[in-house]
Design a protein around this nucleic acid. Structure first.
Lengths: 202, 202
DNA sequence: ATTAGCTCGTACGGGAATGTACAGGTTAGC
DNA sequence: GCTAACCTGTACATTCCCGTACGAGCTAAT
């Protein structure tokens, strides 16, 4: 794994900086517009298109790299959050410190979906998904999260809400300051055990 | 308005049929893939590409026509649903008879978003949005729907959930038979007044 | 200071999709 | 049955984006 990470360590500091700028530019651009052009990304990175092709052979390769980068960042955040105690509060903490990041990744993910082979996506972000699933399961065991809906749907709907919040935020219809609270309130409502009067099939 | 609707009434029955097939094909194709080609749509309609261009001058024109058609269909369904009585049950009825349609329109809507001018979209589906808003407001007055989140967000999140359910359904991760119940349960959870223990900012 | 790596522009070729042009064949409507 | 409207295929111009090739200039590292 060590040799795989640095197959050719002969890289100038200068190039390393360019690559970093390109990857972050790709994350930003693709989160805003999944169809962003290679040229768009290069411009956003303040770099010539040919410089970009010097480091990434194809657009797909760049998209995958951006996704991996975003997922690693998300993983780091997830690892720093205390997921113990009351599952509801843990979820609120998790959302507060990561919703924006996850939302961006979600947009990037749809960008990757049309470029990367089918299974590649699930492979990449299976870790993150499992950790969220674990938290939800723990909440179910505590009796504070619902068990009347498929677990996979609970996770998916969380993603759709986060993605939606990001879109509304970009469209100027949802203030960034209140977005955190709105997201937490909405997601917790979805996850919580339903009151009796809301059951649709008694 | 009468003259605007039928500027050249001289159209053969045969052409009318083709147009209808093309529009429905466009709705189906664009709901599945927002980037569907004109050629794709023509093939789906069982019609030559040139026939299509005989009726629609540009792709945008076709996309808009498809969206209008879907919205009209949605409006018709909405009009047939009894929105009286308990707001929760009314919402459940509304979702049961329209979620699939709305979900498809949502996908089509994103297709239109990248083609039509900015304000055109809101103009087109403002009617439908207002009716849903009205139902939610009535639920708020009845005290069964929450008032701690922006109304616009409640409507938006409904759309994102519906759209998500459609995607999960297409991806084979959500059975069509249980989708109706899942959607209703999720949306009602979002709309319902939150229990005290779920409040994030007391 | 020399060298090897990096940057970047211009230019080119390939592919895909949109929209136009033309021309032969078919069909509805009077 | 005649006519005009309609369907259809092929072919073409245009545009956009991807990826490659070449080459000249700049910069980090030894």
């Amino acid at each position: 794994m060590v040799s795989a990470e640095t197959p050719t360590p002969r890289r100038r500091a200068d190039a390393e900086r360019s690559i970093a700028r390109i990857v972050t530019a790709a994350r930003v651009s693709l989160s805003r517009n999944p169809d962003a052009t290679v040229d768009d990304i290069a411009k956003a990175a303040g770099v010539g298109r040919m410089t970009l092709y010097g480091h990434f052979r194809t657009r797909s390769e760049l998209v995958e790299r951006a996704l991996v980068d975003a997922l690693e960042a998300g993983d780091k955040v997830l690892a720093d959050v205390d997921l113990g105690g009351d599952a509801r509060k843990a979820m609120a903490r998790l959302l507060a410190s990561s919703w924006q990041l996850v939302a961006e990744s979600a947009a990037l993910l749809t960008a990757a979906q049309s470029v990367l082979p089918a299974g590649r996506l699930q492979d990449l972000h299976s870790d993150a998904a499992e950790r969220v699933e674990g938290l939800i399961r723990r909440g179910q065991e505590q009796g504070v999260f619902r068990t009347d809906l498929p677990l996979s749907w609970l996770v998916s709907s969380m993603h759709y809400i986060l993605n939606g919040a990001a879109q509304e935020n970009r469209a100027g219809r949802l203030d960034a300051t209140q977005a955190t609270q709105v997201v937490a309130a909405t997601v917790l409502s979805i996850l919580s055990a339903p009151a009796a009067e809301n059951l649709t099939t008694p």
